[in-house]
Design a binder for these strands. Sequence first.
DNA 1: TTGATATTCAACCATATGATTGAATGTGCG
DNA 2: CGCACATTCAATCATATGGTTGAATATCAA
Lengths: 136, 136
Amino acid sequence: MSKPVKSTDREQAVLNLVFAALSDPVRREILTRLDGEELLVSELAQPFDISLQAVSRHIQVLVRAGLITQERTGRISRCRLDAEPIASAAGWINQYAKYWQQQFDTLVAFLPELDNSNTEDDSHGHDHSEDENQRD
Amino acid sequence: MSKPVKSTDREQAVLNLVFAALSDPVRREILTRLDGEELLVSELAQPFDISLQAVSRHIQVLVRAGLITQERTGRISRCRLDAEPIASAAGWINQYAKYWQQQFDTLVAFLPELDNSNTEDDSHGHDHSEDENQRD
DNA sequence: TTGATATTCAACCATATGATTGAATGTGCG
DNA sequence: CGCACATTCAATCATATGGTTGAATATCAA
């Protein structure tokens, strides 16, 4: 239950941007689709119902958060995941994840039908997802 | 570099709320202060410059995201961390953290003094944060 | 009951966000 | 050159967010 360390304002600003960027499902899906390959703006935009311009702005939000970079060659712009700021976010969240996970394990111990094997990183498929914990 | 799994709409909704909740520094600090102890709304509010009412609403945002719970006894309301939804967020982000961290390591291998340009305080300090960008 | 305390609710305001459409920029190519 | 293409910029709109102050609710205590 170690207390998280205090961060600088700068780190806080990064976390603000990163978490805000991650709070939108379109942007998360963009990141998902960029996992492992580079894509053009137009390719990224294609599956979405919103306009290309809207996607372009989502991409800019991700760029500002440092989560992706764009490399423009000619008139096309390739997007790829970038590494740095997510480490801050992952670091921050994982401090809590430890505590939360521990609490979660306790919870699971009381609710045996939930699979408690996700204490570690099989979490790709983590499936305690019948949450009725949030509204709306 | 395994592709992340598709999530349900419900999971997406949880992630929306959780990441949005985490995007505010006041709320993150509330969580930080709740790591290991329960606190009253008024105790939580005390170090902040904003009104008690504003803090109360931040707390409600965290409750809606499932990150904390409030237990009211009499006129006081104790807040404590809650476990479940953060597991989703941690799971989600960690899928990427692996990829990102690997990329980051590669980057660092090429640029041993990566951050001497502008960053100072730790290994992933990153500097595009003179930030003008979000509301607060 | 009266009054102080703890918290929430409500109304309001300023700003941010996400979407749209239309115009602008810039590049590739016939 | 002149036009199609890829992307961004700009204006606009509706809604969400975060802050304020003041009132309401509820509990404790004298």
